[in-house]
Nucleic acid binder design. Structure first.
Lengths: 152, 152
DNA sequence: GGAATTCGAAACTTTTGTTGTTGCGAGATG
DNA sequence: CATCTCGCAACAACAAAAGTTTCGAATTCC
């Protein structure tokens, strides 16, 4: 089962966007992610609708952050890209009346619930500013350059 | 992203198998799951290789449990069906050298690690006998019949 | 021994969801 | 008014999982 990496990618992009002047075009972002601009627009549309970025058309247009990184959590971005399911494993509902299935699904479900709760708490507790700080610390340690298209 | 329900289904099947006499054929199990016998064999093959069930060919053949339910945990079955990834969301590795990506993936990764640890602990702590007990309790409460093909 | 049953395995097809592509329109800039 | 850029919809390509077909081999029943 393929993993959805949009959250990781969007977080990555947003932090870079915070460090550059002006707008980042869908094309630039697409190059950075090794994909194409339409896919970028599709994903960024969610962030725009939720008010984290703004898009401008025409010369010099593109995407810009509309909030400080300190006011955006990882959970916010997860929601903004459509709240995709965290889990690749789920319960089967072949026989909803079957008491065996119910017992199995109850145990599985409570495990997934607890894990999801943990994930959500963690995601909600980390802002993009925290991630940027973490980046700065790594940067200070190895005195090297970050190397993505957007940061050049 | 579609969810993998094999774990749920296999747990369900194994508990029913424990309650019936003799072997359950791939055909019977397939009917119960609304699928076909080849898929059942594919999945059961993992359980056989890990020693939880045994298969017999010919008349009266099929699948039988080779251990008491109390000696099989939910985690065992998860492993037996190939240890499928728990998470549908993952980190992107577009720029492994990029310190921003590293910071993002470190935060995401630690959240997933903690959630996975929780899941594994929970799965390892629940035996199929526990699930069967849970079933019995539900049964006692509503004084009704479980209703799957295998239990008739 | 022969017919029927059942699993084992490989090859192939179908299905489903995601991603990528194309094309056109609309707004903004120079 | 030419160019850049996003918005959107339709379509194509791709990948992963599930389903199907078709063998073969082992077992049981008669």
């Amino acid at each position: 089962m393929r993993r959805d990496s949009r959250l990781s990618r969007m977080l990555h992009v947003l932090i870079h966007m915070d460090r550059i002047d002006g707008a980042a075009t869908s094309d630039q972002i697409a190059q950075m992610l090794g994909t194409n601009p339409v896919v970028v627009r599709r994903t960024m549309a969610g962030l725009r609708d939720d008010g984290y970025v703004h898009s401008e058309k025409g010369h010099g247009g593109g995407w810009v952050l509309t909030r400080p990184l300190s006011e955006i959590t990882m959970l916010d971005i997860h929601r903004a890209i459509g709240n995709p399911a965290f889990f690749a494993v789920g319960v089967a509902v072949d026989h909803p009346e079957c008491l065996v299935e119910q017992a199995v699904n109850s145990a599985l479900g409570s495990a997934f619930e607890a894990a999801e709760k943990l994930l959500i708490e963690k995601f909600a507790s980390v802002t993009l500013a925290d991630l940027a700080d973490e980046f700065d610390q790594r940067m200070a340690k190895i005195a090297n350059k970050p190397t993505c298209e957007l940061s050049r």
